[in-house]
Design a protein around this nucleic acid. Structure first.
Lengths: 190, 190
DNA sequence: GTCTATAACTCGATAGAC
DNA sequence: GTCTATCGAGTTATAGAC
């Protein structure tokens, strides 16, 4: 395996730091120490903090969509949603990780505009993807009848994001599993 | 009406700032300018930034519980939950406010311990209150049978918190209303 | 591509006058 | 209780050597 590129290491470490501590609370030094370089080397790869954060979110979005394109492309909406739940369940198991964009959403007004746009884009594309799956499940007769695909999709996204928040800050360990079970119950997935 | 005390003004302004920008991104100067005083005057009322934030959350918890004790003490769980939804719906309508503790949860690991304890306490007492209402509604035959009160309560809290996040950061304006409607559907409140 | 050194700034917090 | 003045630490970002 080729040695990981420095810029990729920076992105990976920064993502983890934002997921635990947020954007405003982390510094170039926090990142540099963990990557094993010095502060100015980060600026060589990313012009400033905002550009770095925007690149981190952009990478996260690609990863997320890539996973879905690869593993959630079956004709069963229920099976596709099962894949979708996995990252949330994994973050939940970690105990102190929340969704990257959920963390950034908490301090939204304090973010540089380029980061705000990336975060908004994440939520919108997630919403679109879920919406497509709900529609598929309704047409397939996999899900309960009479569902509003759009409203159901916003709700699914909301309760997964919120579950990670409440799990970590409230110490309520079953949050994500409870959210997933409730979603399945509501959609009538056995 | 008596003139508002400076310490109360500081708490009120700080709450709004955290709800929009988070904890790490705001400074004593941001607060002082809005209150109409200078930085050092804040330290006269609150020894340091952590103590101020802890006081803000403490005040928020009292306000929230006070509202519930006053307006949500009927024998109908459905009616009590209706009161509970109001602050979330109001934050949602504002467009850029989220729950104070939802904002703080996003940067949880970066908070001073005294603030973390307050935030954890908020989520736990909210969870307890909702849990009591769900149990009441089950015993009253107001809600669907077979509900797990504890898991349902975590889910209700999660999806309201998440709805505020997704609403603001994703620009999806119907989020909170969708969450409330879905909760009612799930519990079988007409 | 990484480093040392440092500029320019902002932060939380303190000292002490009024 | 509020102020001016300031400290010391930490911040992003830059300059320039290697």
């Amino acid at each position: 395996m080729a040695t990981e590129r420095t810029s990729d290491k920076i992105i990976k470490i920064t993502q983890e730091l934002i997921q635990t501590r947020g954007y405003s609370a982390i510094s170039f030094d926090d990142i540099a120490v963990r990557v094993g370089i010095k502060k100015p080397s980060i600026v060589h790869h990313f012009a400033n903090k905002g550009e770095l954060a925007a690149a981190v979110v952009d990478n996260y979005r690609s990863m997320f969509l890539g996973l879905l394109a690869q593993s959630a492309n079956s004709e069963s909406a229920a099976r596709n949603l099962e894949v979708y739940f996995q990252p949330y369940l994994q973050f939940g198991e970690s105990g102190n990780l929340i969704c990257l964009c959920g963390a950034l959403a908490g301090e939204f007004s304090a973010l540089p505009e380029s980061v705000q746009l990336q975060v908004s884009g994440f939520f919108q594309e997630q919403h679109n993807w879920i919406c497509q799956q709900i529609s598929l499940g309704i047409n397939n007769n996999e899900f309960a009848t009479g569902l509003d695909a759009n409203a159901t999709a916003t709700w699914v996204l909301s309760c997964l994001q919120g579950a990670l928040l409440v799990r970590r800050a409230g110490g309520i360990t079953t949050c994500v599993e409870d959210a997933v079970l409730t979603i399945k119950n509501y959609l009538r997935i056995s």
